[in-house]
Design a protein around this nucleic acid. Structure first.
Length: 921
RNA sequence: GCCCUGGUGGUGGAACUGGUAGACACGCAGGACUUAAAAUCCUGUUCGCCGCAACGCGAGUGCGGGUUCGAUUCCCGCCUGGGGCACCA
């Protein structure tokens, strides 16, 4: 009997489908376990070998947990709204729903090939009205809520209105504008419109104004992705910033809880660090500086935010962001032209470019601020390195303590005040907190670290500023001027946003004739008269709306009365294991954490963190292959021979290359015989290609389609090979050539059961102690490795096990059957085939997991490596229960050891039981 | 620029908590079986040096320092690949 993987895999996939083997119930006496993959965006390029890496890992873990007796929820779906489908629609006129459907079908077929254990009856697609109805519903919850800072949770907006009617907003400061203050009487006196405007500033989903990338030539707003070097990717037109009305989510209200919540979940330290850096909580002060200009009214002040109030006497200049409102009122006549020019220059630049810029640029406003402590006049500059969105959009610059300020001062010849004595060398800034202060009046001689608190107290006492906790994180922009997204369930009546009633959901995305933007850069929905007549919002929601809560819908995907029944979400609770890439570190993972907290606050679910444990999979890079064409000819030169030649370097399809050797016949037929006339200059009869590692992408011809590998080697081989490639969380280039080794392993396993000539060779004889030792060593290793997601070493352990069993010619089912159960999560098809072939009746998917028994593997002695002065000189076998005295005696009596000791006395004898021995002489 | 992360043989990687560096594979070389090939099996394979061989010597985990009896692992400085940076998903 031969290992016919193709037949076997088809057979079992069909059998599991017919028997609904992967269907999961919402009620079970077993403990629950929820394993989730980050669902894919169904791009037109289909699945490449990078996608399944995480899916295979989650599949292995789900199957493992099932064998261990858990009721495992393991669903899959599609994040189906988004820009690429819309782009495709603009270019090809195909409705996004049509191309998305087609792409999903391709993805599904590819996923099925690999033999995943998803419960497909729970599939969701974020672009389906049955799904986005509930995305819109959650938006209404956000819109109708505010953050009660007294109780530290979200509440219905009606509670806030009650409070305003009784007490005004005295105990509920306006989160976006602290100057908004009113009494109950004033509230009553406001018009409905005024009241609504105030409420908008409290809502968790609110309207405001924000800057977008605006391309006048295309008449549209561009995503950051569509802007390259300050011009549009399509057509290369100039892009500037433009202010538009936008929806936002008040994620800043949750900044502290998003931060403290990290302590309750198992994310990697790196991931937690990225999130807390993104949130960017800092403690400091806002300090008011009066403007020193007789021409201006004397009350004008510039407020800066600083985390280092201790350096107040080292301020040599101020820098305000080019967008800062104060610029218009303080710029002097002499500087006006220079300032205008500078602001125009900055307008064309992205935040990223502004921060990354090494060249120092800036412009003096002509105005001065006054240091409130010593009356010193401080010049006010504008520079792109200060961003409007952070702090107050203005900083006090202390060149001796901040590198960027220092470079700025040097560049513009601004005199530098030294407030840290010898700690400043005059050449570069020193950002220490551990130097005593100089030239600092009442802070002189005090360590900076301690001076911070003293300065804060003084600033508050004198009323020139106040303590302030600041966050780098900004509220999340939540609207797009696009078509392919969820419509907002909102109508605009007399300038007031009015939420639709729940009963009106879903608000269906209407058909459009054109995907072009509406007038003034609005979304395509603005082109539909019926839509505009109803005064419906013309923006749509961003890609992350649907993905912020999808893990809840899987629990109860067909519910028509609720996004997810409370009893069901109480049962499944948090996602126990979430697998996906780090590229979502600060986007999706923060948004879904916020949405979960809001739903929790409002009582819709019973937990406030969505993901109990997160495993990040690495990125699979493509390994590109190149051929070298002699300039102006059809002659291709092998990589080793190109030195000194003028050649063009061309990407070739990696699938035509075996390792680095080009299949020349395939190459000639490639791209419709484009290279039919190619001639080759070979080395040792072979054409050797150039190699480079880059992002896996269709245009680089370095994508590898899993279908081809599954066809050639089978799904089991493919699954195990992806795992064998390396640690699941590490990025690595794809290379197909090692797959043979894994395939050989499975064939070797097969031969433990069936011989091509002899037929069945397995037997029911009692297993030898050696065989049991091999089995139990493997049970321990596989269980440990699977638990810690070390799938590559688990595959290696399987190989060692099969090699060892083959060496001792063990064919006993007493050993082989438990081995198959261990293997099921990794290679389910071949395991199931051999399991039934050896006479088992029950399904291997629910077999009982083998239990490790230490008695089979205990050793009585150990080959100790013995070092002299840290260099291993010999190995000595010593009983494991030997005492240190016995060991010392044995080692020192060894002739080889005596030779290396050269008669010197023992200085130190180090004995680590079960590990090693080191003699220091 | 800022944040995170990686760097070990010809290649992918192993070494889990400071304790024999290179497990397991790929590739390569040689051999067995075969008319031949495929498949399979066996042997060798970090580098350098000495050599008939050795359970010989030396070096060695990106580079330079440090701590330690002992460092791929911990500390300091540097070089370099990858991911993210708020409208790609």
């Amino acid at each position: 009997m031969e290992y016919k993987f193709s037949e076997i895999e088809k057979k079992w996939q069909a059998a599991w489908k017919t028997s609904d083997a992967y269907k999961v119930s919402n009620t079970s006496s077993k403990p629950k376990y929820y394993v989730l993959d980050m669902f894919p965006y169904p791009s037109g390029a289909g699945l490449h070998v990078g996608h399944p890496l995480g899916y295979i890992a989650s599949d292995i873990f789900s199957r493992y947990k099932r064998l261990k007796g858990f009721n495992v929820l393991h669903p899959m779906g599609y994040d189906a709204f988004g820009l690429p489908a819309e782009q495709y629609a603009i270019e090809h006129g195909v409705h996004p729903a049509v191309s998305t459907h087609k792409n999903i079908d391709t993805f599904r077929a590819q996923l099925d090939n690999i033999g995943f254990c998803y419960d497909w009856s729970r599939e969701i697609r974020t672009c389906e009205p049955t799904y986005y109805k509930w995305t819109q519903w959650i938006f209404l919850q956000l819109f109708n809520s505010f953050y009660n800072t007294q109780k530290n949770k979200a509440e219905h907006i009606s509670n806030l209105i009650d409070e305003f009617e009784k007490n005004g907003n005295a105990s509920h400061a306006c989160p976006s504008d602290a100057t908004v203050q009113f009494t109950a009487a004033q509230w009553e006196a406001y018009s409905n419109q005024e009241q609504q405007q105030i409420l908008m500033q409290y809502r968790l989903a609110f309207c405001g104004h924000g800057e977008v990338n605006w391309c006048e030539a295309l008449g549209t707003v561009l995503a950051n992705d569509e802007v390259v070097n300050g011009v549009s990717e399509r057509g290369g037109h100039p892009v500037v910033k433009k202010k538009l009305r936008q929806w936002y989510l008040r994620i800043t209200a949750y900044a502290d809880r998003l931060l403290s919540g990290l302590e309750t979940i198992e994310f990697s330290e790196a991931m937690k660090e990225m999130q807390s850096n993104w949130i960017g909580k800092s403690y400091g002060a806002e300090i008011d500086f009066k403007i020193a200009s007789a021409a201006l009214d004397t009350d004008a002040t510039l407020t800066v935010y600083t985390t280092r109030p201790d350096t107040i006497f080292g301020v040599d200049f101020m820098v305000v962001a080019p967008e800062h409102d104060i610029i218009a009122s303080i710029t002097t006549k002499e500087q006006q032209i220079a300032v205008d020019n500078y602001i125009a220059y900055v307008k064309s630049r992205s935040d990223r470019e502004r921060q990354a810029e090494k060249k120092i640029s800036g412009c003096f406003t002509g105005a001065f601020a006054v240091n409130p402590f010593n009356g010193k006049q401080i010049p006010i500059w504008i520079s792109e390195y200060v961003l409007a969105g952070y702090g107050t959009g203005a900083i006090m610059a202390v060149p001796c303590g901040d590198e960027r300020d220092h470079k700025f001062a040097q560049h513009f010849n601004i005199p530098i005040t030294n407030i840290i004595g010898d700690a400043y060398n005059g050449q570069e800034a020193n950002s220490t907190k551990d130097a005593p202060l100089f030239n600092s009046d009442f802070l002189n001689g005090i360590l900076m670290r301690d001076a911070i608190e003293i300065a804060l107290a003084k600033i508050e006492a004198r009323g020139i500023g106040k303590r302030k906790v600041n966050y780098k994180m900004r509220d999340a922009a939540f609207s797009r001027q696009r078509y392919w997204g969820e419509p907002f369930p909102v109508q605009w009546k007399n300038g007031v946003a009015v939420a639709l009633d729940e009963t009106e959901l879903p608000l269906l995305l209407p058909a459009v004739d054109s995907y072009s933007p509406g007038p003034e850069g609005e979304g395509p929905l603005a082109n539909i008269p019926a839509w505009v007549e109803k005064e419906l919002e013309t923006n749509t929601m961003p890609g992350y709306a649907g993905s912020s809560w999808y893990f809840l819908r899987y629990m109860d995907p067909h519910n028509t009365d609720s996004f997810c029944d409370r009893n069901v979400s109480d049962y499944w609770n948090q996602v126990d294991l979430y697998i996906g890439g780090t590229e979502h570190a600060v986007g999706h993972l923060l948004y879904s954490r916020m949405w979960t907290k809001v739903l929790f606050d409002l009582g819709h679910i019973g937990f406030d963190e969505p993901f109990r444990k997160l495993l990040n999979q690495g990125m699979i890079q493509g390994s590109s292959r190149f051929v070298f064409r002699k300039k102006g000819t059809q002659q291709f030169i092998s990589a080793g021979l190109i030195a000194g030649q003028e050649v063009d370097k061309l990407h070739v399809d990696v699938n035509m290359v075996d390792g680095v050797e080009l299949d020349m016949e395939a190459f000639k037929k490639w791209r419709n015989n484009e290279y039919a006339n190619a001639s080759f200059e070979l080395e040792n009869g072979k054409y050797i290609c150039g190699v480079e590692v880059e992002k896996m992408s269709k245009s680089k011809f370095n994508t590898v389609n899993p279908d081809i590998l599954v066809e050639k080697y089978g799904a089991d081989t493919f699954r195990m090979y992806e795992m064998f490639l390396g640690p699941v969380d590490q990025s690595k280039p794809w290379d197909t050539k090692g797959i043979e080794g894994v395939h050989r392993f499975i064939k070797k396993l097969w031969r433990l059961f069936f011989d091509e000539e002899k037929g069945a060779v397995y037997n029911n004889e009692p297993a030898s102690p050696e065989a049991l030792k091999i089995l139990h060593r493997t049970i321990k290793k596989i269980e440990e490795d699977t638990e810690r997601f070390s799938f590559n070493t688990a595959v290696s352990a399987f190989m060692i096990c099969v090699n060892d069993l083959a060496d001792i010619k063990c064919h006993s089912t007493q050993v082989l059957s438990p081995l198959l159960v261990l293997l099921t999560p990794y290679a389910p098809h071949v395991a199931a085939e051999l399991w039934t072939a050896t006479g088992n009746q029950e399904s291997i998917l629910d077999a009982s997991y083998p239990v490790f028994d230490a008695k089979h593997v205990t050793e009585s002695s150990k080959e100790y490596p013995v070092s002299i002065n840290g260099k291993v000189r010999t190995n000595i076998s010593i009983a494991l229960d030997a005492s240190e005295e016995e060991v010392t005696a044995i080692v020192l009596a060894d002739t080889l050891i005596q030779k290396w000791m050269e008669g010197k006395p023992v200085k130190k004898f180090i004995f680590v039981k079960g590990r090693m021995i080191n003699v220091v002489v």
